[in-house]
Simulated scan of single mutants.
Amino acid sequence: MSDRLKALADAGVSIWLDDLSRELINSGELARLVAGSSVVGVTTNPTIFASALSKGESYDDQVNELAGQHASVDEAITTLTTTDVRNACDLLAATSAATGGVDGRVSIEVEPGLAKDTEGTISQAEELWKIVDRPNALIKIPATVEGLPAITEVIGSGVSVNVTLIFALERYRRVIDAYLSGLERAAEAGHDLSQIHSVASFFVSRVDTEVDKRLDAIGTEEAQALKGKAAIANARLAYAIFAEAFDSDRFRTLAARGARPQRPLWASTGVKDPSLPDTLYVTELVVAGTVNTMPGKTMQAFADHGEVLGDKVTGAAAEAQQLMDSLAAVGVDYDDVVAVLEREGVDKFQKSWDELAATVTDALRGAEGE
């Protein structure tokens, strides 16, 4: 058992692994992480699936079977990815049962090309929920403007959702409203609200990447002093929004009917700037009742030398706002930063999806002997 990761879990942070592959499941490595590294959930995305499918032979038998059925590329992608998610859900079923469904969760994302398509997102989210057919799955829906009504509709139908690609504080407020509106619809439809779970994935490291690039361009001493600080401040302000929203009369009315808060999930927690501590986005965002989803490298770094220094988030909003005001004062346009990050996030996932489709196309052709 990793003492440092256990200390993080004991502080109330749910540790989810930001990785999934058939090899990870079949080798027993995921089970070992659950048993020895306090891992209680898994997230994935098109980038992760593209990487998994391009390596090794774990998918060969199923690809051959799909080729024999003359499956289309889209059908093959759905079958391959939902198989992995279903198997991971089964592996984490005991964790789900032990936590009342709060943890033991495995996420799968709707196709990135649907990020601007409300109806398409709703349709695919509900389809993926039915195909995976596991109560501890989460369907990932991006927090685009078009994604917001989809979140409400899907939650309202009783599906558990991981809202992803959140960068902007104002957008996060709208995500929470979409979730609460979905719970209200679910209640009207007679769903058991206690069985509907959701997390809001607030992206962290990419904020520093974009802001620090702009600070370097500004080049002043004042600008340089602000590097590596925007992402933590942004996340701490997001937590303040969460705390206020889920201490409201609106949520208390839903909670009386069994509803659960939509937990903040710190995503993109791998440090991209080598001058920053490699566990920065874990140590500085410790607060009970949140999720930190880490790539394997970050999890290993924290297990080796990470520190839990207590709650680093509650009560930190005023200082975080001062930092954001300082960024504005030196010329960093926050609204433009988060708009760029959302656009790039969708584009990156679309590129990964295209790579995934190309990999599956080649694999099907190879299996068919072309």
Rank of each mutant, 00 (worst) to 15 (best):
I15N: 12
D18Q: 08
D19K: 06
S37I: 00
F49M: 10
S54R: 12
G56S: 06
Y59F: 15
G68F: 00
Q69S: 11
A71E: 07
L92P: 04
D103M: 01
D103S: 12
E111R: 13
G113Q: 10
T121L: 04
P142L: 03
T144C: 09
I155M: 03
N162Y: 02
F167W: 06
F167R: 06
R171H: 09
L180W: 08
G182Y: 02
E188Q: 15
A189Y: 08
I196E: 03
V199Y: 01
D208I: 04
T209N: 11
A217G: 07
A217E: 14
T220N: 06
E221Y: 05
E222Y: 02
A223G: 05
K227G: 05
A230Y: 00
N234R: 08
A238G: 15
F242R: 05
E244P: 04
S248P: 14
T253F: 08
A255K: 14
G258S: 03
A259D: 08
D278K: 09
L280R: 12
V287S: 14
K297I: 14
D304I: 00
V313P: 11
A317S: 12
Q322T: 14
D325E: 13
G331W: 06
D335S: 13
R343I: 00
K351N: 12
T359L: 00
L364Q: 08
G369S: 03
